[in-house]
Nucleic acid binder design. Structure first.
Lengths: 317, 317
DNA sequence: ATATTATTGGATGAATTGGATGATTTGAGC
DNA sequence: GCTCAAATCATCCAATTCATCCAATAATAT
């Protein structure tokens, strides 16, 4: 818990305006001190007292860093870092707080990619590290992952792509059971205005290719967390890259398994180190597609043929 | 969904006067808090609950921040079965409409279990049937599943279990990669007031057992969609059932693979054919735990020991 | 059918809320 | 120490909500 809160922080936490908090402080309803320069500062304990007595609803518990007022002490240990707090929430299975924190980070101006690359990744990694040491690690990790999946799903409801949005399509290939990275990618892509079609985990690459034929995306992403038979998967991905390249569709590979792979460079193939890169790539794609908007009025087939001739010409990177 | 509503907002949303909302709040029909200045504020989830239980019609869903609902309302005039419409939405990858339809069914008074047993199941089955006939079936199914997962995650945000709620714990065992059934079970359980800890898919049963030791649930569910080596899994489940039975913890098995299994009957073991049954079981459990509230004031250890002696005595079924 | 009771929603003046403004303070980086 | 963007200040004001009363309508009893 923060030792001192500004009027704005308390206002956000209980869903009222900053003005009201200030007035209440001035009316003596909330105890507060003033800095030398006259800024109001509310002590954490006073904030808790006020929330309790006014029976306010904690709209964003994360701002105060507490949910159950009885368990205040426990939360003091949560510290100040977003990643730390997220980690604690995930570890303790506190889904509402996870949702609240993610949402407030986004509303606070961070991009989805930044949140996932930053606190999200850090918290989940930290969790993984800690739990590999414990016998019962698996179940903590499973629960944390489940809560994280739900948080991403909720975050994604904030975005509704336009009807004519650029389409992105992706998933995790056969043998890779991890849902979260692909879902995160979809969230990042939709946050940039694309329409993301996520096929989830364990999707055979030929099924993915069929989906490409049907949905005609401009971008395909592949999340690679674990790969079974390395060589075989490399060949499969290379074939996919070739097929997509022929159609002028960009392919972005990402995930922790991608470093260990040895792939041939291909036009339109991009290897992303982070969600931020994926975001940048997508933004470039959108900008480009706006510029070549007139070309898009041609029929699908023509567009495919055209980009086939010059697959690099339309790349935003 | 907006986190906090004023009386006027809720009044506009359901097409009644502001005065009525205020009176209903004062009469205790709608839960609300007051600001320091005495203005009434209604929590979003409470508004949903009231709309549902009072059978009000949402004239302006968008006022509550439920824009998805507005989109679906338009389609309602198009007619057709709920399951049909859900199927079309899933097939066409229209995630917001899926969310909206699920929410409108819930607001219309159906329970989470009814929705999942009904339209949800039907639509997904129909999708499965259709797509097994097509070559490219897999990708349709993957996309539909992903959208369904997100819808359940969003639906689940409506429920926030009390701090002293009865705990349920579950997942899908090793070899079963299906996330959705277990997540659906969690949603059903939380809709009845329990706190559901979902460990997701592919969880080793000994990890699940470790989680039982830590989280001390009153109920464990197991979603069985596919089972690898049947005999081995039966033995594992039987062992789990025995261990849980010894601790007085009820075990509920569900999922389409459960019919094909041959399990020994055990005290505290229940095989559920549907989400409705799971819901009924959970309700029984809650009712029972309220009745034996005084016993709950004993220490954890004592309670465990007590129920160990008479594992059936506390069963609500 | 008439009387009685309950529910609804509009109207009122007073109080509360929250957004906007330009000036001031804070805190982080250099 | 200096600079600068972000946060906060005090103040003002329009919009909203408050509590209360009352008329109109709906439901129920006689």
């Amino acid at each position: 818990m923060k030792p001192l809160l500004s009027p704005r922080e308390l206002a956000h936490a209980i869903g009222v305006s900053e003005s009201s908090i200030k007035r209440w402080i001035d009316d003596g309803l909330i105890g507060a001190t003033k800095t030398a320069g006259g800024h109001r500062r509310i002590a954490g304990s006073e904030a808790i007292r006020f929330v309790r007595e006014s029976r306010s609803i904690l709209v964003r518990p994360d701002v105060l860093g507490l949910q159950e007022l009885a368990a205040v002490e426990k939360d003091i240990t949560a510290g100040g870092d977003d990643a730390d707090r997220l980690f604690v929430y995930l570890k303790e299975g506190r889904a509402p707080e996870v949702n609240g924190l993610i949402l407030s980070l986004y509303l606070g101006g961070q991009s989805v990619a930044e949140i996932i690359d930053g606190p999200f990744q850090t918290a989940l990694e930290k969790a993984g590290e800690l739990w590999t040491k414990e016998e019962s690690g698996i179940f903590w990790e499973h629960r944390a992952t489940e809560i994280a999946i739900r948080a991403v799903a909720v975050l994604r409801t904030l975005f509704s792509p336009a009807a004519d949005a650029v389409i992105a399509l992706g998933g995790a290939p056969t043998g890779d059971p991890y849902i979260l990275p692909s879902m995160s990618s979809a969230a990042v892509l939709e946050s940039t205005g694309l329409r993301a079609e996520n096929l989830g985990a364990d999707i055979p690459l030929d099924s993915l290719m069929r989906a490409v034929e049907t949905l005609r995306p401009s971008l395909v992403w592949l999340s690679l967390s674990v790969i079974g038979d390395g060589k075989d998967m490399e060949q499969q991905i290379d074939r996919l890259a070739r097929q997509l390249s022929e159609r002028g569709v960009r392919l972005v590979l990402g995930g922790r398994a991608v470093e260990r792979m040895d792939l041939l460079p291909r036009p339109g193939l991009h290897i992303g180190e982070s969600m931020r890169e994926l975001e940048a790539f997508a933004k470039g794609l959108v900008a480009n597609s706006v510029r070549s908007e007139q070309a898009a009025f041609q029929s699908d087939r023509e567009t495919v043929n055209e980009s086939r001739k010059n697959p690099r010409e339309r790349s935003g990177i």
